Structures are given as C-alpha cells and as structure tokens.
Amino acid sequence: MEKTLIKPSLKPTILKTETQHTNTETPFYKPIAKEIEVFEQAFTNKIPMLLKGPTGTGKTRFVDFMTHKLNKELITISCHEETSSTDLIGRYIIKGAETVWIDGPLTKAVKEGAVIYLDEIAEARPDVIVAIHSLTDHRKELYIDKLGKTIKAHPDFMLVASFNPGYQKGFKELKPSTRQRFIALAFNYPNEKDEAEILINETQIDASTAKKLVAIANKIRNLTELGLTETVSTRLLVDAAKLIHTGLGKRLAVRVAVVEPLTDDIEITEALSDLCDLMI
C-alpha cells in the first residue's frame, strides 16, 4: 500500500507529492463504535464519507487505519484557506519549450482508484466544494475545465473528508447542500478506559500514568468556563505520554504537551498548570 502526503503550494506549480512505500503493519486504532463496518460499507457502495469531530479525536488515524486494512493507496490533503480546485485537479506548467498538463492529486486518485482524504475541508476555498460535487453524487465523475473533458471515477475511488464543527463556528461551516452529499460519522473523545488503552499502545507508558493523564484531560474538558477554543485532544495526551516514557519529568511533560498548546493566556496557563501538578 502506498501513502501519499500532499502539501498544497501557494506557488503556481503542481503540488509536491511525497510517496512512501509503507510496510504491511496496520497502525493501531481503537474502535469506539461501528465505524469500521460503516467505512467498509461506504467503500463497497462508493459513498463519500464525512468525519466530523474535534481536533485530535482520531479522524486522520482512522482513515490511515482503514486504507491499510483495505490495502488501498491514501492521498491526504491538508486543506487551508488557499487550497483551490486548481491545486487538486491540476494545471499546465512550462517544461522546456513546451506547455504540459500535470494531474493534481484529486485527478490522480480519480484515475487510479485511490482514497483521497480532504482534511478540514471547510478550510478550503469554495471552488474546491464545487469541483467535487460531481464526484459526490450518482455521476461519480470529475470535470476538468482547462482540458474540456470529463473523467469517470475508477471503481475503487473513494472520497473522504473531515470537518471540525466546533472550530470558528459560524465562519467555517459546510453548507447543508454539501453535507448531504456525504454519509457522516461523528468522532469524540474516547471514554477513560479506551483512551488510557490508546496511550499505553501508542507510547508503552505504564497504566497508572496513562490513567492520570486521561483524568487530567477529562478535568480540563469539563472546565467550559475557561472559554478555550480547543480542549485537550487525545493527540496531546499521546505527546505527553511519549515525553514521560522517554524520561522527561511528568509535570514538565504535561505543561509543555498539554497546557501550553491550549492557551496563551498567562493566568489560565498558570491555573491549568497548578491543576495538572496536583493531579499528576
């Protein structure tokens, strides 16, 4: 299986593609509900899938896990405010004395039958949504206006996108007409037992410390009065657990991996640090 990471470029050149030939080992993923079965059925029926939930709840890891499981190539695009349809579809470039067309990652996935993952799709420019419309309904085709031609999607092509409904609410949201082109899976933070198991499997940290880290995370997640834009993700806990496992002091590891990334407010930072110091 090949995994391709796409980093959209702001320059008028085709996106750079880095291809890795990974081993056959499937990355660790802890199922929470029936998401594996849902993904498999969506792939079988070629139905686009939208993964929605807070940052760091395992959306990207889930897609990575499923493409390994299905032995499919994965092309990931981290969308941002400058990501355009041209970045995804392709463009003409000057090569020597000629002008040649270079396929973008979306066109490549459509032709070759890869799984394309549009991470944080709401961050992309509106023309990206327009470009994928014909791929998310019964037509399953991609129109390339610069070439004046339409490409039918490979039978194994699948479109997956992620979306954080709580981020910049009211500013970066998907229109209902777009959302209804996908089936959707909601991701949230795991329960305490599952989250501790994830930390242990990811970092080989001891069970006692894993439980304390999860307890800290849940305490902060419930402090809604602080008005944090984002709260403690499982990803942050994994980072803290790795630092502790390799020898960094527990209090310092929690501060730099959990507290500091959450806020720049000095008073809130100190309050959270004191809380974590007591709990760890």
Rank of each mutant, 00 (worst) to 15 (best):
M1N: 12
T4G: 05
T4W: 14
P8T: 09
T13A: 13
I14E: 06
I14C: 12
T17P: 05
T22L: 09
T24F: 10
T26F: 00
I32W: 04
A33P: 00
I36Y: 01
V38P: 04
F39Q: 01
K46A: 15
I47T: 06
I47S: 03
M49W: 09
K52E: 14
K52R: 10
G53H: 11
T55I: 02
G56V: 06
T57A: 13
G58R: 04
T60L: 12
R61T: 06
D64I: 13
D64L: 15
E73H: 06
I75K: 00
H80Q: 01
E81W: 00
E81S: 13
E82S: 15
S84C: 01
T86E: 12
D87M: 13
D87P: 06
R91L: 14
R91N: 15
Y92T: 13
I93Q: 10
I94Y: 08
K95R: 14
G96A: 12
A97L: 06
A97Q: 07
T99H: 00
W101M: 10
D103N: 14
G113M: 06
I116F: 10
A122D: 11
R125A: 12
A131Q: 04
A131V: 06
H133K: 07
H133D: 07
L135R: 04
T136Q: 08
D137L: 13
H138A: 14
H138V: 11
E141C: 14
E141A: 15
Y143F: 07
Y143P: 00
D145P: 01
D145W: 00
L147P: 13
L147M: 11
L147V: 07
I151D: 00
P155E: 05
D156V: 04
F157H: 13
F157A: 02
V160W: 03
F163G: 04
F163H: 10
N164C: 13
G166F: 04
Q168Y: 11
G170L: 08
K175C: 08
Q180M: 02
R181P: 08
R181F: 07
F182R: 02
A186W: 02
F187Y: 12
I198M: 09
I198V: 15
E202L: 09
I205A: 06
D206P: 08
S208D: 01
T209R: 01
A210P: 03
K212H: 08
K212W: 07
L223P: 02
L226N: 13
G227Q: 05
T231Q: 05
V232G: 07
L237V: 05
V238E: 14
V238Q: 07
D239F: 04
A240F: 05
A241W: 02
A241H: 01
T246N: 09
G247V: 13
K250V: 14
K250D: 10
R251T: 09
L252I: 09
A253G: 08
A253D: 00
V259R: 10
E260V: 07
P261Y: 13
P261L: 04
T263L: 04
T263D: 03
D265E: 11
D265H: 01
I268V: 14
I268L: 11
A271Y: 12
A271W: 01
D274Y: 09
L275Q: 02
L275F: 11
L275P: 10
M279C: 06
M279N: 07
M279D: 02
